[in-house]
């Protein structure tokens, strides 16, 4: 399990890569929201998806061509 400190460091690094400046007074709250997202992502990885389970928004030509 990732500790709060590690999670905060992980988030700060990700935010920096994204070019964000995180206000100090909002950091704890943002990390709590980020922690929820990490838990959700872990939950989805328990679904045992197979290689045949393609993404829902798989690339298709029709909507692209018709919007030209």
């Amino acid at each position: 399990m990732t500790s709060t400190t590690n999670l905060t460091d992980e988030y700060i690094a990700a935010a920096a890569r994204a070019g964000l400046t995180v206000p100090e007074d909002r950091l704890d709250g943002i990390v709590r929201l980020y922690s929820e997202l990490r838990s959700m992502s872990s939950l989805l990885r328990s679904m045992n998806l197979t290689a045949a389970d393609e993404p829902a928004n798989i690339y298709t030509f029709d909507p692209i061509l018709r919007s030209e």
Binding site: R17, S41, L49, P55, A56
Partner: peptide, 29 residues
């Protein structure tokens, strides 16, 4: 504050997180 915080949290999501969610979406649908 609230919109900013919610969106900022997304900076930590990875491409793999999103792809897994999109795959889950098809299964759940």
């Amino acid at each position: 504050q609230y919109a900013m915080m919610r969106m900022y949290a997304g900076a930590g999501l990875t491409a793999m997180d999103l792809v897994q969610a999109l795959r889950a979406r098809r299964v759940l649908s």
